[in-house]
């Protein structure tokens, strides 16, 4: 129940929400072309077709929106998967959908469809995610237990990874290979509002499904039997969690590639602040994920390295040592 320490919970969510807002505005302000954001905004509102308005609407806004939405999806999904598995090492990729989404996008590259029209990539990613999701949900609907679902996810990820490697192996030209490899690293650069429109409905569906399971995840703290005895439908819980994760992460990977470590690190970081309650961690991790992704995407553009570093590379570069440091501290505390 949220009533214990509810005020501190509201404070945390409020602070994280404010942080996301600040970083969202920062993301709008940061870019390669000098831009008077105030002027551009005024042009946009008054319908003036200036270069500034165009840059804001076509470049900066989609990038900031996707940063927030992809980050929210990854953070929320990480928290949901860790709660469902009751394991702090679970991450959004664990249901296998991210691998399948990446494969779908790679196939769009490989087949040349991506050169024919720009949205072929995210559409391919969504198709890959959809197929993997259908498979997972069929399993979950049969009443398959959580550990078997996760093993199925691991198998799906391995298969998708192998097929992606195969596509690279058989790639017609080194340029195509390079393009695929770069795409797989994850980035928010050069995305349009079409990308946002394509991914956001699926992400929103995923968010709704996952934000609903807070009580179930709290109950699951005491094990599946006890949760079931409290009136929680385990099957419904698994369906909501895996279905929501698949929709949110599938859409994220489809538009932004694989951005690692956000979904693993953010729930870890915030867990002590919500008293380790898996239900309360959900929304907090969503905002935390959005903040981290937006911050990393700002850093990518501020760093004096060109061509721009890939976002997935940066999150892993920051995330992995940070994660190790966290484990180091936990180990010292345990001693």
């Amino acid at each position: 129940m949220s009533r214990f320490h509810a005020p501190s919970q509201r404070l945390l969510i409020g602070s994280l929400g404010a942080l996301v807002l600040v970083l969202f505005v920062a993301s709008l302000l940061i870019g390669y072309a000098p831009l008077d954001v105030g002027g551009a905004l005024s042009d946009l509102i008054h319908g003036r077709d200036t270069l500034g308005a165009l840059v804001l609407l076509q470049l900066r806004l989609p990038r900031a929106l996707l940063g927030a939405a992809v980050g929210f999806s990854l953070g929320l999904t990480g928290a949901a998967m860790q709660g469902l598995m009751r394991n702090p090492l679970a991450d959004p990729g664990i249901v296998g959908v991210s691998g399948a989404a990446a494969l779908g996008a790679v196939l769009a590259f490989y087949s040349g469809l991506a050169n024919v029209f720009a949205l072929a990539l995210p559409l391919g990613g969504l198709a890959g995610a959809a197929i993997a999701t259908a498979l997972l949900l069929a399993l979950a609907r049969n009443g398959t237990g959580t550990s078997l679902l996760i093993l199925a996810g691991v198998a799906l990820n391995s298969l998708a990874g192998a097929l992606t490697a195969l596509a690279l192996n058989l790639s017609p030209s080194p340029y195509a290979t390079l393009e695929i490899v770069f795409w797989l690293m994850g980035s928010l650069a050069d995305r349009s509002l079409d990308h946002v429109a394509l991914a956001l409905p699926f992400m929103a569906l995923g968010w709704v499904l996952m934000l609903r399971i807070g009580h179930g995840l709290d109950a699951l703290t005491l094990g599946e039997d006890t949760a079931a005895s409290m009136g929680i439908s385990l099957k419904g819980l698994r369906l909501s969690a895996t279905g929501g994760a698949a929709a949110a992460v599938g859409a994220s990977v489809a538009v932004a590639g694989a951005i690692g470590f956000v979904g693993l690190v953010v729930p870890h970081l915030l867990r002590p602040l919500v008293g380790h309650r898996p239900g309360r961690l959900l929304l907090a991790s969503g905002f935390g994920g959005a903040a981290l992704t937006l911050a990393a995407d700002c850093a990518v553009r501020l760093a004096p390295i060109r061509p721009e570093l890939k976002l997935g590379v940066v999150t892993a570069l920051i995330g992995a040592p940070f994660f190790l440091a966290l484990l180091w501290r936990l180990r010292r505390e345990a001693e």
Partner: peptide, 20 residues
């Protein structure tokens, strides 16, 4: 229902476990 060897998977506070 009180399960045999009941687990508590996250380090919650005692009062929060009871509150469940």
């Amino acid at each position: 229902y009180l399960a045999q060897n009941g687990a508590i998977h996250w380090p919650l506070k005692v009062e929060e476990v009871v509150a469940l």
